[in-house]
Write a protein that binds this DNA or RNA. Structure first.
Lengths: 221, 221
DNA sequence: GCTACTTCAGTGATATTGTCACCTAACGCT
DNA sequence: AGCGTTAGGTGACAATATCACTGAAGTAGC
């Protein structure tokens, strides 16, 4: 058994009885990938279930022309259920998962996955919870894109991206790809935020100087 | 056993061995609902898995102001996995499933569902396939809303709604709610379609007079 | 240093879509 | 027919997207 009991870190699996965790350790393969690695995509259909041990995966969708939109992120401790959808889909679709940092993933072969689902109720509910969370994430995206204002969404995203910090390192294009809009739109709204004293910009860098105000804008939906 | 072997009609369960079908019949409850019945929604969280035996359920999302968007439809033979997401969600969200016709549903109590998933591999893959299909449906919605042109989406929807027929019985508001846009937008685009000889309108009724042309518009993405 | 090259950001013009206000036409009802 | 309700039309304007540029800021080579 490995020195690190990695299953400890999987959200929702904390309550798993000891033997279940050991079984997970037994059948899973640990893989490392560099930042930028495409975990799955239209041209790269995996045949295994993927759990993320460390790092984050950005799952995004690409349009015919150059625009992107981020659907959700997979954080450490979560599983990437779109890979299963990916496996089952016969019609083409253009979602892809890319490592946003160096990542360490736990690869669970389809057969082992199937057996664990069958035999371990706790694992089963973990998997269904993962699916449900993704469905709800997507509902949120639909809601935002269909009904949300761009300045509200941008403010919200800035607050999320900055985390506990004060600075964000991202180009306008990066942020446009997050929100599924065009760079020019982001440039204009950011310009407006700057005029209002909410942020300070420099090339590839945004400093949030009035986080509470941004949060207030983000809440106004 | 009922006279009708309804499990025959469930897509993806055709290959189930006889005893599995019998077990489904055993534990499931059949319920009838009128058109307009809310199968699930923010105020109405079910505690069972729902399979649709007959009719269709429209799953849509409502915005803060009056706008709606249709996420997908559940047809006979499919399961409504959002109900499970519904059950698991702690944060509020505003999706609802409404019977679009009189429906007959098969209600599978959570416990029975769990047991079937555990014990019947065929049932298991049926359920995962259902989840995946919904995820992919939602990807399509995101793609349309974020990147699609409204005239293209409208033409597409008209062709789908008309089916093998030539007429659609729906108000502009109905169609706007399908696509997540405003009535005025639909009115204008339909007016344009009419001027171009693609459709003929009367109150609450649209006749597709040039379906091939509409299909051509729908394909132009 | 300077130059060439690339990436990033700003901006005006225009098209598309959404919002608001108000109007008219069609239908159902008594 | 008269009346109320719903469906649909339209102009004005706001928000967002697209296009075609511009210059500014970094980067690599010399």
């Amino acid at each position: 058994m490995s020195a690190i009991d990695w299953t400890e870190r999987f959200k929702g699996t904390q309550g798993l009885p000891r033997p279940v965790r050991d079984r997970l350790l037994d059948v899973a393969l640990i893989r490392n990938h560099k930042k930028g690695y495409q975990v799955f995509g239209p041209e790269n259909v995996p045949d295994s279930l993927i759990f993320l041990y460390d790092g984050t995966i950005r799952v995004s969708q690409t349009s015919g022309n150059g625009r992107d939109i981020v659907l959700y992120r997979v954080d450490a401790g979560e599983s990437c259920v779109l890979t299963t959808a990916c496996m089952l889909a016969e019609e083409a679709y253009n979602a892809e998962g890319v490592a946003e940092s160096d990542i360490q993933v736990v690869v669970l072969p389809k057969m082992s996955f199937d057996r664990l689902v069958a035999e371990e109720p706790a694992f089963r509910s973990f998997v269904f919870a993962a699916y449900s969370r993704r469905l709800i994430d997507l509902l949120r995206v639909v809601d935002d894109v269909a009904f949300g204002r761009i300045d509200v969404r941008l403010a919200e995203r800035l607050v999320v991206l900055v985390g506990g910090d004060k600075e964000i390192s991202a180009t306008h294009q990066d942020i446009a790809s997050e929100l599924g809009t065009a760079r020019e739109v982001i440039s204009r709204v950011l310009h407006d935020f700057q005029k209002r004293g909410l942020i300070v910009q420099s090339r590839g860098r945004i400093t949030l100087s009035d986080k509470p105000a941004l949060r207030a804008i983000a809440e106004s939906d």
